[in-house]
Design a protein around this nucleic acid. Sequence first.
DNA 1: GCAAAAGTGTTTAGCTTACACCCATGA
DNA 2: TCATGGGTGTAAGCTAAACACTTTTGC
Lengths: 253, 253
Amino acid sequence: MPYDPSAFPPFAVTVDLVVLTVRQHALCALVVRRGEQPHQGRWALPGGFVRGDEDLSAAAARELTEETGLLAHDPTHPAPPNAAHLEQLATYGDPKRDPRMRVVSVAHLALAPDLPAPRAGGDAHSARWAPVESLLRQEDTFGREAGHGEPLAFDHARILADGVERARSKIEYSSLATAFCPREFTVGELRRVYEAVWGVALDPRNFHRKVTGTPGFLVPTGGTTTRQGGRPAQLFRAGGATLLNPPMLRPEV
Amino acid sequence: MPYDPSAFPPFAVTVDLVVLTVRQHALCALVVRRGEQPHQGRWALPGGFVRGDEDLSAAAARELTEETGLLAHDPTHPAPPNAAHLEQLATYGDPKRDPRMRVVSVAHLALAPDLPAPRAGGDAHSARWAPVESLLRQEDTFGREAGHGEPLAFDHARILADGVERARSKIEYSSLATAFCPREFTVGELRRVYEAVWGVALDPRNFHRKVTGTPGFLVPTGGTTTRQGGRPAQLFRAGGATLLNPPMLRPEV
DNA sequence: GCAAAAGTGTTTAGCTTACACCCATGA
DNA sequence: TCATGGGTGTAAGCTAAACACTTTTGC
């Protein structure tokens, strides 16, 4: 059945960002306070319109830098100090997802190390890191959490849940967990990333053997640190490997 | 940096389909001959514009039915006889990917059993199943293949490659390979699906043990068939399990 | 009978797990 | 000295890979 292309309906295309980090043993997402209607005053994922001459990934990288100061990191090049992992997540286009007009949102997932402080940019009045656990619990129960009573705007709870699930599964078979760590980190710090993202406890001894025994995952820098207390721990940087084979095994839920 | 939403640039949004099947031991994709400019006469992935009141998945399901007669299959419901698996793949929005206008394409991946014959629909003059190996080889070498000399239109070779990669990895840890099989199938037929998608040979004996030993993957129907020759083989239907744990292991490349 | 495909049994190697145990530091 | 986290050793159990072998049909 032919469809007249000259009469194609106009869409607005946006990018929304699921920016995840690990702070204080909890997986957190960046949310911004909406400054305008609809859902004014509600928390939402950062995002914005794609410009006319801009690729989707470029729009996502631009929004990421505006909101956080982080640079999207092309994995084929050496990482700048404030690098974050950025990848496309999925696209959301329910005709009713935005009451103003037909908006298709290309969601992206960013993984970043713990930052000093979020930086409010774009049209957001303020920004904060919130534990994903509390952001997603609201979707089900509407239990009012300390300081932020409403569920996320639009379909952003759904997008966040998809992003979290992507991150949880992807650190199983890739070295992406290092994107949550500073440039130099210890095995224990990397383990705490896995524990926070998966929400489980891992055996420190087997974890150590596993990650140090996977070729290309970690490269020792030679230095040590005692910033976590206890015996000095070796410092590592992320190695060149991107796929872990065999993968890290997530314990049964 | 605020950006005036009232001045958002208008986009056309399309869905493109990577429809895969296995025929004669080869992974094949559905391609249609373009009937109009640009790239008139070239092979392309089937697709079309998303309508004004239509969700993205609904548009993809509509295009799939128009092109093949297959029904997109909600895995929470029992499968109709002509069911296909359909899922979102990725979104492609390079500003220059279509010379006519700014088009964002939300690609979807469909997996279907071997069909009697493709059915030309939409604005396509004709449709055919082509081995993905030959469709993707053209991207690199431009070696002229029998009967179809040019690479795919637009960025469709890239989209196809992404869809094939998704299918190859997803049959590792999910029961999706059964989507390539008829409703009742033998272990050997399922193995030939894996072999065609991965392009490797698998040990029939270990494969048999593995798939029949994974709970919920296959349920015996009680019947047998000799349509593959040799000793009669038990017939199975896809079980309720969607995730395979432990996964099928793809041999080293 | 013979070819062909379907299945079963068995051995070996690699990996995960659980946990005992030792190491090096700060307080 | 003790608490804390870092790191190594080791034995048990599970899985996959390789392959010998039996089963059941069509021709």
